[in-house]
Write a protein that binds this DNA or RNA. Structure first.
Lengths: 147, 147
DNA sequence: AGTGAAAAACGATATAT
DNA sequence: ATATATCGTTTTTCACT
C-alpha cells in the first residue's frame, strides 16, 4: 500500500508536521519536487487526512481529563449523542459495541465542571466516569503492516 | 494565559499545521516575524507540544479500532503496563481511577489480530473490549477558557 | 511586542530523463 | 516516477520603534 519512502515521509511528518519539503527530501534521499508529489498523492489517497497540533491541555487551563462511558436510557440515544457533540469539553467520542454506547474523553478545569457536565447528561443516560491519572501512551502511529 | 491572537494562531494551526507564517500573519493581522516569534514562544512555553499528522488508519490497513478496558491481576500492574507499551497496535492508553486500571485504544487489521493481542494479556489481566462502530467526535480542541 | 526591508532559504513549475 | 534549473515566494535576520 505504502512503499518504504512513503512510510518514512509519514513517520517524519508525524514527528514534525511542519518539516520543510527540503528537509523531508534530504531525509528520504529524493529531490523536493518528488517529495512534494508524493505528499500530494498521500493526501489525495486520503492516507494523510490533515496536519494538526499537539496542544498541552494544562497550558489551556485544563487540569485533568476523564474517560466517560455513557449508556443512554431507552429512546435517548440520539438526544445523548447531540448533547455530547454540543459539549465542547468532549474532545473525543467513540460509539462502541457493548453495554456502554459511547466512550468519550473530557477535558476539565475542575471537579465542579465535571459535575456540571455529568448533571446535564444524567436525565438521559447512565454514566461511568474514570479520572485520568496518567497518560501511559499519548497518541502514536500504529506500525505499517507488511502487505 | 493566551491572548486572543495566540488563540487564533493555535486554532488555525490545529486546522492546518502546515499553514505558512505568511498566511497565519494575514489571518491574525500581524507581520510574519511577529507570528514567527509568537510561535516560538508558544513552543517554548509548552503550549504547542508539536506538529503532527492526522493519518487515516484504513489507509494503513487497519480495518477497525477497539477500546479495551484492562484490569491487571494482583501484582501484575507493572507487567501489564509494559506489555501494553510494547504492543504497538495500542495507540493510546490512559491510566485511570476506578476498577479498570487502563483504558486503551487498539488499531486492528482483523478480529484474529484482536484475539492474538488479548490472548497475550489474558494471563496478567482481565479485559473488556468494545469495538468502535463510529467515531462521533474525532479529536478536537477544547474551548479556550476565559481566564 | 511589534514593524519593514534585505538576505537567505524554500517551494512551485517547467523541462528532461 | 524522478531530477535539475529557474523563478517567484516565504522565512529569517536585523535595525528601529
Amino acid at each position: 500500500m505504502l512503499d518504504a519512502i512513503d512510510e518514512t515521509i509519514v513517520q517524519a511528518l508525524a514527528g514534525n508536521a511542519r518539516m520543510s519539503l527540503k528537509e523531508l527530501a534530504h531525509h528520504v534521499g529524493l529531490s523536493s519536487p518528488s517529495v512534494s508529489e508524493r505528499l500530494r498523492r498521500l493526501e489525495e489517497r486520503d492516507v494523510i487526512r490533515g496536519y494538526t497540533l499537539d496542544v498541552n491541555p494544562k497550558a489551556l487551563g485544563y487540569q485533568f481529563q476523564a474517560i466517560v462511558r455513557i449508556r443512554p436510557l431507552p429512546g435517548q440515544l440520539q438526544a445523548v449523542q447531540k448533547l455530547i457533540e454540543a459539549t465542547p469539553e468532549f474532545c473525543e467520542c467513540d460509539k462502541v459495541t457493548g453495554e456502554d454506547c459511547f466512550v468519550a474523553r473530557l477535558f476539565l478545569q475542575s471537579l465542579e465542571q465535571l459535575d456540571g457536565i455529568l448533571d446535564r447528561i444524567a436525565s438521559k443516560a447512565e454514566t461511568n466516569t474514570s479520572i485520568v491519572k496518567a497518560q501511559t501512551i499519548r497518541r502514536r502511529l500504529p506500525p505499517f503492516p507488511a502487505e
